[in-house]
């Protein structure tokens, strides 16, 4: 018996590879910062020179000082936390319903024929069209907002779960059958891990939609939250408040997505992907 193949195994990463890749990462990050930084400087200079009128486009420094003022008065935290909790609650509710329904429909073909036409029809409704109905049913309090977000999160998660489960390689399932595994253990040990990548893709796009829908939900009437700040800025002619709120949305959206991305990297280390 020969061992030659084994000695060529690629398990030893070449030393220094990690440091080179992190240097590369920092470098490309820095390169990506050049244009935004330039724009910010031009914007600041132009605002101070009076080229952009203050009441339409305040300088970046003015936006930052608005943010600082909001933060020091404690208001910022109230708005951020109420928006964040709406998104998270809606995200979890939508995900849970999608997981339950998606797993059943993915596993049992007849159920798909029963449910899928309805779900496809519902999906083609632009979700904002639900807003008046939800307000009518649940008032403008938290329930209708969270429901709207949950609806937005539901569809991408559901669709990805179903296609993930149905896309599992039949050949891998046969391996389970060779070992006389029960249907339950084939599901938990083969189908679920194999459809995990697709599920995680669904989670990330669901979260993205959750952020979009929280804006809509808060614009339709709220007494706190980042969407409320947007309306407030509009009604009081304070573009700095609007811009501050937009920046906060960007930061929160990116941060929550980064968490999911981290989760994805950690649980999909086995995947054969092009690594950057």
């Amino acid at each position: 018996m020969t061992q030659t193949e084994v000695s060529h195994s690629p398990n030893k990463k070449s030393p220094g590879k990690k440091t080179t890749s992190s240097v590369n990462y920092i470098r490309s990050f820095a390169i990506g910062l050049i244009i935004p930084a330039l724009l910010l400087i031009i914007w600041e200079v132009a605002s101070r020179a009076g080229i952009f009128p203050q009441y339409l486009l305040p300088a970046p420094s003015a936006v930052i000082s608005t943010l600082v003022a909001l933060a020091s008065s404690g208001e910022l935290w109230t708005h951020v936390s109420s928006t964040l909790s709406r998104v998270l609650i809606g995200f979890f509710l939508g995900t849970i319903v999608a997981v339950v329904l998606g797993s059943f429909i993915g596993f049992f073909k007849p159920l798909e024929r029963l449910f899928d036409p309805l779900l496809q029809a519902l999906r083609s409704i632009p979700s904002l069209a639900w807003v008046p109905l939800f307000i009518l049913w649940m008032g403008i309090a938290e329930t209708s907002k969270v429901t709207l977000i949950a609806v937005g999160v539901f569809f991408p998660v559901y669709l990805n779960i179903v296609s993930g489960i149905q896309g599992v390689d039949r050949k891998l399932i046969e391996v389970g059958k060779v070992y006389n595994m029960s249907t339950a253990s084939i599901i938990t040990r083969i189908v679920l891990p194999a459809s995990l990548p697709s599920f995680l893709v669904g989670l990330r796009s669901g979260l993205g939609l959750g952020w979009m829908f929280v804006v809509a939900a808060e614009l339709m009437g709220a007494s706190e939250g980042l969407g409320f700040l947007l309306t407030l800025g509009q009604n009081t002619s304070r573009p700095d408040t609007i811009l501050a709120s937009i920046i906060l949305f960007a930061i929160l959206g990116k941060a929550t997505d980064a968490i999911l991305k981290q989760l994805e990297n950690r649980s999909l280390r086995w995947q054969d992907r092009y690594e950057t």
Partner: peptide, 15 residues
Amino acid sequence: VGLKDTEKLYPRELS
């Protein structure tokens, strides 16, 4: 089967 040092590898890392 002659795969002594591969326990912790993932299938994608195998020939």
